[in-house]
Design a protein around this nucleic acid. Sequence first.
RNA 1: GGAGAGGUGGCAGAGUGGUCUAUUGCGCGGGUUUGCUAAACCCGUGAGCCUUCACGGGCUCCGCAGGUUCAAAUCCUGUCCUCUCCGCCA
Length: 428
Amino acid sequence: MLDRKFIIDNVEAVKLNCERRFVKADVERFVSLELQRKSLQQDLENLQASANAIAKEIGKASNVEERESKKESGRKIREQADLIRSQLDSLEVEIDSVQKTIPNMTHPSAPLGVDDLSNLPIFNGKTAIPAFDFKVLDHVELGEYLDLLDFESGARVAGAGFYFLKNDAALLELALQQYAIEILIESGFTPVITPDLARNSILQGTGYIPRGQETQIYSIDGTDLSLVATAEIPLGGLLANQTVDAEQLPLRYCGISHCFRTEAGAAGRASRGLYRVHQFTKVEMFAFTLPEQSEAMHQEMLQIECKIFDGLELPYRVVDTATGDLGGPAYRKFDLEAWMPGRGEKGEYGEVTSTSNCTDYQARRLNARYKTKTEKGTKFLHTLNGTAIAISRALIAIMEIYQKNDKSIAIPKVLQKYINKEIINKKK
RNA sequence: GGAGAGGUGGCAGAGUGGUCUAUUGCGCGGGUUUGCUAAACCCGUGAGCCUUCACGGGCUCCGCAGGUUCAAAUCCUGUCCUCUCCGCCA
């Protein structure tokens, strides 16, 4: 969320920002509701102050008549206060629902545009797109031929969108995790295996909506828990309602979790095979920083993502996400898009990582704060997240880029030590 | 899953309806004394919100959410967490 005071003081800038992001948010309504709330709040506090004073007098009063008459006036003030409080409660709900629709402010350099077509490619990875002198297959065909992916059994066991990773694909998942984690530890990230379920309050704090028509989230019936869509959720929750000392910052975490997504209404187009699935494993970077550290941390995360994919010798490009394609909490976002030769007619880029600087937008909802030795009070942290490796998408890129004429798949050099082989062949 | 105990400020720990401005100690900050250090003594020491140019004032917070009452850390209900015992279990 944006700070309420900030919105009131910067109405025009906030409205312009909504336009630039192609988001419909009724900023004017927010302002009028919030001003109304403030004045009611003041009324309530005044009533409470006098009710408190009366209660104190009753405590000291010795004679019975005096007590009784004061009780009566206390009761009346109470009734008035209750009335205002109920107005205030419903106003609060309304304000919150409008406030939630107002997105974060946007980095001035983010490209302007309605959707992902306006994402601006800014540079390419070290590895060139290879030329194939044979007809390339996609990862679904390769996976079936080499007995690596079993979508049919996945569907039988858990439904469409689920799959089994088998044989070397299972080993590749473990190898990719290990490979990414080693790079992250070198870079000062604390490795964490997170809960795969989280309380709905934590989901909301991180900006995910557990229930409703368009939710991406699986909820556990009869409980207050949901399956996490990313380790960003539990990692953000690490500091929910906490205050940390400024000297400890920045805090870098990398979380390994399973990720569960309903992908409601996303079937069909461009989501064949492993591209859009209900469950996958992901290593996620997450950082809590001081405000002045977050832009540098965002670049650091992007560099790590590049290091990981350069190391895997996969061709990719980096795009600066367009204003209209940014999620609500993101101030700026970079994606890595790997070249997937089997995707579409002639191969296409497909998103494999995403890193966002959420500034204090997420922290405000999480109530994650820091304090300094010199200044009074506390302030909101900045939070950032970035994909280190999303196994399912990385597998697509690896299988399709490393495929050979005979339908075998070479294993990237950096992963060979984990699997003890150089090539995946069809079993006899 | 069953039974019980508990959750109070940075930490320890008192407070069982009003005299509470949440006692006290430790820690922390400042000061006095002092060759230096220590000790002793004195003062101060949470967060959020509203208001004020400022000084200051007000409201809220005793795990969390409700309720009773003129008044709740204290009584009631729900809930979360921690600990102990029993059962089950990789």
